[in-house]
Design a protein around this nucleic acid. Structure first.
Length: 559
RNA sequence: UGGGGGAUCGUCUAGUGGUAGGACUGCGGACUCUGACUCCGCCAACGGGGGUUCGAAUCCCUCUCCCCCAGCCA
C-alpha cells in the first residue's frame, strides 16, 4: 500500500487518527435497515466500512438499524447477510442490532430527562409539524416543553408501560426551536408504536428514532468512524449533541460521503419495491434489478462489483456513473475466468452440401484463447449446422466480414465454408443456406493455410441443446430515473428479451451458475432459479464489446 | 430571501502555490480462427469574473449553478 494518491479523504482522516494516536484500533460498522434488499449503493458502503476495517486490522460490525418495527422483516435480514458474505466480507461475531440496545437506550433517555434536556410532548404529529416552522421561519416552543423532570419521567415511564395510544405522546430533545438546522428543532427521540418487533416481540411499545439510536449504538460498540451518506450531514450536530449530553465512554465521529448512483437505474428501496408490485420485474433478485441479489443472479462477479466501487472512489461529490463503467469491470473480471463456449441465439440453418451425410467429426476447441491451462473440449461437427442470423447478409456492405452469397467464412474450430445458395420461403425470407466446405481447412490440422477475413460461431443442428436465453437491458430509458416521480412512464419496454437458442453439447449438464462466454456474443450464466438440465435457462450477464455494431450504427446515421 | 454540502475531460477520479495525471467512454490504428482480448496512438477538463503572487485547480473576494433538510422514516 502506497500513500497519498489512492487514499480517499476518509481513509486519509483515519490514517491521521492512527498516526496521531487518537485511535489505536479502527472500528466501523455497516448499518442497514432490514426493510428491503441491498443494492449497488450499499455495495459502496459495505466495501468502504469493511474495507477500512480490513485495511487497518480493525473491526467492522454488521448492525441492523431495526428501530422501526412494521417496516422491517426477517426475509430482509437473511438477504442482507447472504449479500454481504457473497461480496466477500465477514463480520465475525460482530452481528448486532440497534434493538440489542433498547434497554440501554431507554435508560439513557431517562437520563436526558433528568438532565432537563428531554421532555414528553402531547402535541399531535400534525401540531408538531406546525410548531416546527419552515426552512425560513423559526419554530415555536411546544406548550409542554417546560414540564418538570418528575412529570416527564412519569409520563415517559407510562409511555413505556403502554398506557398511551400510538401518536399521543413523544419524547423530544429540548434543543432549539429556532435553530436554522431543522434537525435541531426539538427532534423526536421516542415514539409510541404498539407493534411487535421482529426481534423483541411485544417487549416494547416505544421505539427510539434513528438519530438517537444510531449515535449511541455507535458509541456502545466503540465505533471510531461512523461513515454514512451525505444526506445525514446536517444530522451530525444532533449526532454530536446526544454524545455531548450523555458522555458515553467512546466517542464516535460521523463522516459523510456521497452516494453512488448508476445511470439508468434507481436505488430507492420503495421504488424498487413498486417495480416488483407492478410486475415490472419478477422480484428483488430479478437479474435486471440493481440489488446485490439481482446482480448476483445476473452473473456479475462479486469481485467486479468491488472493483467498480473502488474505481468510483469515495468523495463528497454527487455521482451518476455510466453503466459502461460497471460493465467494463464485469467484462474485465469475466474475460480471464470464463471458459468459452459456442451458442447460437437466433438460429439460421446451414447445410454443407458436400459434407457426407451422417458423418460427425469432433473438433477440438480451446476453453480460453489466452490461457491454454484452461484446456480444450471437443465439439461435434456435422452436415447441418446453426449459425447466427446476424452472420449472414444477402446484400452485405463492403466491411461485412461474415457470410454472404458466394462468400467465404471460417467456422470457428471448424472449416472454411462458402455460401452457394440462399433458400427462401414463399415470402422471400431466408430459411436456409446451402454451403460447401473446404476439407483442406480443418481447424488446427488443416493442410491449407488459407485465410479468410471472418470467423463465425456455430452449433451442430443434430447435437445442439435447446435452451432459453434471457437478454437483459437497462430498466429505464432516461439516465437519471431517480429524479422522475412517475417512473412507470420511463420504463424500457425491451429490458428483457427471451430467445430460443441452441447450445454446444458441452453445455448440456451444467448445474452451477458459473459464468461462461458464448463466443462473439457475451458472458452468460445459468439462471440460479430457473435453470435445469432438462430446461436450460441462461442469463446474459453482459455483451462483448462490439465494434461491428458501432460500424453499423455509424453507417445508419451516416446515410 | 434559513441552514448544510458540492463544482477538474462526456463519466468517475488524482492534484493541497511550480509541466493538470489516471480510469471508463469516444475516435484512429496494429494484431486476430471471437469485429473479443491485447497493444499503440488521438480527442477531451480546472463553473464565471476579479485579486494576491515570478508563478494559482490550489490562497483571497465575488457571482453562478447543482444536491440535501420542514417524518412520530432510515
Amino acid at each position: 500500500m502506497s500513500d497519498a494518491p489512492g487514499r480517499d479523504f476518509i481513509r486519509q482522516i483515519i490514517f491521521e487518527d492512527l498516526e496521531s494516536g487518537k485511535h489505536d484500533e479502527i472500528v466501523t460498522r455497516f448499518p442497514p435497515e432490514p426493510n428491503g434488499y441491498l443494492h449497488i449503493g450499499h455495495v459502496m458502503s459495505i466495501c468502504l466500512n469493511f474495507g477500512v476495517g480490513v485495511e487497518n486490522d480493525g473491526r467492522t460490525f454488521l448492525r441492523y438499524d431495526d428501530t422501526n418495527p412494521g417496516k422491517e422483516k426477517q426475509e430482509y435480514v437473511d438477504a442482507i447477510e447472504r449479500d454481504v458474505h457473497w461480496l466477500g466480507f465477514d463480520w465475525g461475531d460482530r452481528l448486532t442490532h440497534a434493538s440489542d440496545y433498547f434497554e440501554r437506550l431507554y435508560e439513557s433517555a431517562e437520563k436526558l430527562i433528568e438532565l432537563g434536556v428531554a421532555y414528553v410532548d402531547d402535541l399531535s404529529a400534525e401540531e408538531i409539524r406546525e410548531y416546527r416552522g419552515t426552512l425560513t421561519e423559526p419554530g415555536k416552543n411546544s406548550p409542554y416543553r417546560d414540564r418538570s423532570v418528575e412529570e416527564n419521567l412519569d409520563l415517559f415511564r407510562r409511555m413505556r408501560a403502554g398506557e398511551f395510544e400510538d401518536g399521543t405522546h413523544v419524547l423530544r430533545a429540548k434543543i432549539d426551536m429556532a435553530s436554522p438546522n431543522m434537525n435541531m428543532r426539538d427532534p423526536t427521540i421516542y415514539r409510541i408504536r404498539h407493534l411487535d418487533h421482529q426481534r423483541t416481540g411485544d417487549t416494547w411499545c416505544i421505539y427510539p428514532m434513528y438519530d438517537y439510536a444510531h449515535g449511541l449504538s455507535d458509541a456502545y460498540e466503540g465505533i471510531t468512524h461512523s461513515l454514512c451518506t451525505l444526506e445525514f450531514e446536517d444530522h451530525r450536530p444532533l449526532y454530536d449533541w446526544f454524545l455531548d449530553q450523555l458522555q458515553p465512554e467512546h466517542r464516535p465521529r460521523q463522516i459523510e460521503f456521497s452516494r453512488l448512483n448508476l445511470a439508468y437505474t434507481i436505488t430507492s428501496k420503495r421504488k424498487l419495491g413498486l417495480l416488483i408490485e407492478n410486475n415490472v420485474v419478477s422480484g428483488w433478485d430479478d437479474p435486471r434489478m440493481p440489488t446485490i441479489a439481482g446482480m448476483r443472479r445476473r452473473g456479475y462477479p462479486a469481485l467486479a462489483l468491488r472493483d467498480f466501487v473502488k474505481r468510483a472512489g469515495v468523495t463528497k461529490k454527487d455521482k451518476l456513473i455510466e453503466m459502461g463503467a460497471l460493465e467494463n469491470c464485469v467484462r474485465e473480471d469475466l474475460g480471464d475466468i470464463a471458459e468459452r463456449r459456442m451458442a447460437v441465439l437466433r438460429p439460421l440453418k446451414v447445410v454443407l452440401t458436400n459434407y457426407p451425410e451422417g458423418q460427425v467429426e469432433m473438433m477440438e476447441a480451446m476453453n480460453h484463447p489466452n490461457n491454454p491451462d484452461m484446456g480444450t473440449r471437443e465439439i461435434p461437427f456435422s452436415r447441418e449446422l446453426w449459425i447466427e442470423q446476424d452472420d449472414f447478409m444477402e446484400e452485405a456492405p463492403r466491411k461485412f466480414f461474415r457470410l454472404k452469397p458466394g462468400g467465404e467464412v471460417r467456422l470457428r474450430f471448424g472449416y472454411i465454408i462458402k455460401c452457394e445458395e440462399v433458400v427462401k420461403d414463399a415470402d422471400g425470407n431466408v430459411t436456409e443456406l446451402h454451403c460447401t466446405y473446404d476439407p483442406e481447412t480443418r481447424s488446427g490440422a488443416g493442410s491449407s493455410d488459407r485465410k479468410v477475413k471472418g470467423t463465425i460461431h456455430w452449433v451442430s443442428a443434430a447435437h445442439g441443446i435447446r435452451a432459453t436465453v434471457r437478454l437483459y437491458d437497462r430498466l429505464f430509458t432516461v439516465p437519471d430515473p431517480n429524479g422522475v416521480d412517475d417512473f412507470m412512464d420511463i420504463l424500457n419496454p425491451d429490458s428483457l428479451e427471451t430467445v430460443a437458442a441452441f447450445l454446444e453439447p458441452t453445455l448440456a449438464d451444467v448445474t452451477g451458475n458459473d459464468p461462461v462466454q458464448f463466443e462473439r456474443l457475451g458472458y452468460f450464466c445459468p439462471d440460479s432459479k430457473d435453470h435445469t438440465v432438462e430446461n436450460p435457462v441462461f442469463n446474459r450477464i453482459v455483451t462483448l464489446r462490439d465494434s461491428w455494431a458501432k460500424i453499423e450504427k455509424q453507417a445508419m446515421s451516416g446515410s
